[in-house]
Design a binder for these strands. Structure first.
Length: 211
DNA sequence: AGCCAGGGTCTAA
DNA sequence: TTAGACCATGGC
């Protein structure tokens, strides 16, 4: 069966140099919460309303109600507003300094993020990788479906994480690129065509996961 | 019209 | 420890 590295190079060849989520760590934090169980287009529209004021200082100055109204189109707006405020407060402890966060060991950082209500495994890993360059492989719905289409049937996310992390170099940039390629594949191909050359299973890229 | 989206939390068994 | 209910809006 195809392994994690082989998958990466197939995707790389198909889609080219992957992009990074955002070079701004706070944008990554905000968007990773907003995108929870929501479409990316809603996130983009919401972020456009901030008009270059997507800074932690600006968010801090908003009342909870104001923040809720701004992010409303992304759904679950009460929960997400609370989470964004908690994340911002967490980042303040590091003086909004990316380097200061980066210096903290990954496992401790991950625990800190997971202790924030509204931040689960995926959100924490997105923030770790794309905002702070820490290597923790990101598993989302696309990753699960993609692997299933390749013929894998993992019991849970722990097994998936191991599948990637045991074989790949412990490299945040690599993890970030990998996740982006899976995304690129699922959005550009799986959603638009009934078949593709990369997913094997029945040749149907749009099928849902069992259970 | 109903289903789904890059999730997370809480609860009951 | 796991399955299911719930959170909410917008797009198709």
């Amino acid at each position: 069966m195809i392994n994690a590295k082989e998958i990466y190079y197939i995707l790389l060849k198909a889609y080219g140099q992957p992009r990074w989520w955002s070079d701004d760590p706070f944008v990554v934090m905000l968007q990773s919460v907003l995108v929870q169980n929501t479409t990316w287009s809603s996130v983009e529209k919401t972020c456009a309303m901030f008009v270059n004021q997507l800074t932690p200082e600006y968010i801090e100055d908003l009342s909870t109600e104001e923040l809720e109204q701004i992010i409303r189109p992304c759904g679950f707006y009460k929960a997400k507003a609370r989470t964004i405020q908690a994340l911002t407060a967490w980042y303040r402890k590091y003086h909004f300094d990316r380097q200061a966060v980066h210096e903290v060991p990954m496992p401790r950082l991950r625990k800190e993020l997971l202790s924030i209500r509204g931040v689960g495994a995926e959100t924490a890993d997105v923030i770790l990788v794309y905002a702070f360059y820490k290597a923790s492989f990101i598993i989302d719905a696309y990753t699960r479906r993609f692997l299933f289409r390749l013929g894998y049937n993992f019991s849970d996310d722990t097994a998936i994480k191991l599948f990637f992390e045991k074989e790949l170099p412990e490299d945040a940039q690599f993890y970030g690129w990998y996740h982006w390629l899976i995304l690129e594949h699922c959005i550009s191909v799986c959603k638009k065509t009934p078949k593709c050359d990369i997913c094997f299973l029945n040749g149907d890229c749009r099928q849902k996961l069992p259970k």
